[in-house]
Structure formats: C-alpha cells, structure tokens
Design a protein around this nucleic acid. Structure first.
Lengths: 119, 119
DNA sequence: AGCTTATACAAGGAAATACTAATATGTTTC
DNA sequence: GAAACATATTAGTATTTCCTTGTATAAGCT
C-alpha cells in the first residue's frame, strides 16, 4: 500500500510561531475530495438526498422530475456520484435504479446530527 | 422555525416507474452545501486537516508554509472555512489561531472511518 | 424492422471558482 | 512615529464547473 503524503514545507526551521504540522495522507485526501466535491453541489446533493430518502432504489425518471435541470444534467450528476462511490446502480429492464452506499448514508447522517445538536 | 422544502415536481401523476419522492429540507440543504463545498476543495481540505491534526490552535503562518499557495489564497481559504462554521479563530497578539469546530472533527472522523472499513 | 422510451455521451458556452498581485489594516518593536 | 511583520481585502484573470443542445445506445412495443 502506498503511504504517500503531501510534503510539509515548514519542516526544519521552527520560527517564532511556526511549529511543523503533521502531514496529510495524499491517498485519503484524494478519496475524500472526490466524495466531498461530489456532494458539495446543489443538484447532486439534492439527488443524493432523494436517493437516500427512498427505501428502495430510485430510477432516473423520478429524479428528473424532481430537480430542475435537464435529463442530461441529471445523468451526468448521477455518474459523478457513482464515480465518487456515493451510489450504486442496478439495471432493471430499460430503467436504472440508484441506491445510496454506506458512505452516503453515514455522511448524511453525520450532517443531520451536526445540524440538529449545535449552533 | 421555517420549514421550507424544495418542491417535488413529480407530485401528482404516478407514471409507470415514477413514485413521488420525499422533499428535501431547503434550510438543511443550504447549510450542508456550505459545509461540503467548503471542504471539497484541495487547498481548504488540506488546511482543515492540518488544523484538525494540531492539538492546539494553528496560526496562519504555519499553514502558509505548508500548502503551496500564496498568503492571500490561504487567508481567503480560511475565511471561507470560518464562514462555513468549520473553524474558529482567536486573535493572540498579531497572530491569529485557527481551531477546528465540532463539525470538522465529526466529519473528518466519519470520512476516516468510511475509508478504513470498506471498499 | 421501425418507433418510442430510458439513459448516456460529447461539444460548446456562460457562470462560478480559486488563484495571483497589489494594497490596506492592525500589531509589535525600535 | 517609522519600519517590519501578520493577516485581510480588493481587483483582475485563468481555470474549472455545470448546464444545454444534440446525438448515440439500448431496450420494449407493435
């Protein structure tokens, strides 16, 4: 397993205020960024919420009606969510059903908890 | 408390495959999107990780050395993280120390857990 | 086979983003 | 108060993003 890290430019000279900081795991960062940037968009977030709300899989046609963008935009958004590991897709006849992954469920739950409790 | 929701375009006619989907809370969405889009960026994610890694607050000068962008860019990134409620800032002399909020800690932990366990 | 429906892919453009450079503000030190 | 340092703000720009239109693929129907 590659254990690459992003270099810490400040390593070496400890100035008045500057203490060297722990490095960031580059692989983890890449994965997390995929996830976060995929979720962090109006259209995709809403699609994800709707997919997560439904108990069973949701087909694309449902989603198209729900969010205010073209069929093509929905398809692209879903592809991106899929690439980020946030949804699974299953083909059934000519429809395609999307379901949330554990990652999606866990993150949305965390977000809900945070909003509920504080601030 | 306002309980606004994003309208579900498909409400009413139930087609062959289309079932109406639960609506998405607009307030929750706005907050979550602030958080997710703030975190979902290379520079800001790395800053956040470094801030979260440090036990005590981190001052901007540390961070500037660590990530490969200008002082101005770091300042802007930190402002955005602050606006999203992901860090607190405290002034001490001419330095400014940033610390992670509970939101940051919880989300990064969730992401770590997810990466560790599956896939 | 041809038509319709469901979804994906490709190309282009408008809008948002994230940076740099320059300047401003505030703090410490001399 | 002036110089030096730490951070923020502004303005401009290059890149990226996200959507639309148009086309392709694939399945179901007649």
């Amino acid at each position: 397993m590659v254990q690459d890290t992003v270099a810490d430019g400040a390593t070496g000279d400890a100035d008045a205020c500057c203490t060297p900081l722990g490095d960031v795991d580059a692989d983890a960062m890449a994965i997390d960024l995929q996830v976060l940037s995929a979720m962090g968009n109006d259209t995709r977030y809403e699609l994800l919420r709707r997919i997560a709300n439904a108990d069973d899989g949701v087909c694309v046609c449902d989603l198209e009606a729900a969010v205010g963008v073209s069929q093509s935009a929905v398809s692209q958004a879903l592809s991106r969510l899929y690439a980020a590991g946030l949804v699974t897709r299953r083909k059934e006849g000519s429809w395609r059903y999307y379901e949330p992954t554990e990652t999606t469920v866990a993150l949305l739950e965390t977000l809900d908890d945070l909003r509920g409790t504080h601030e």
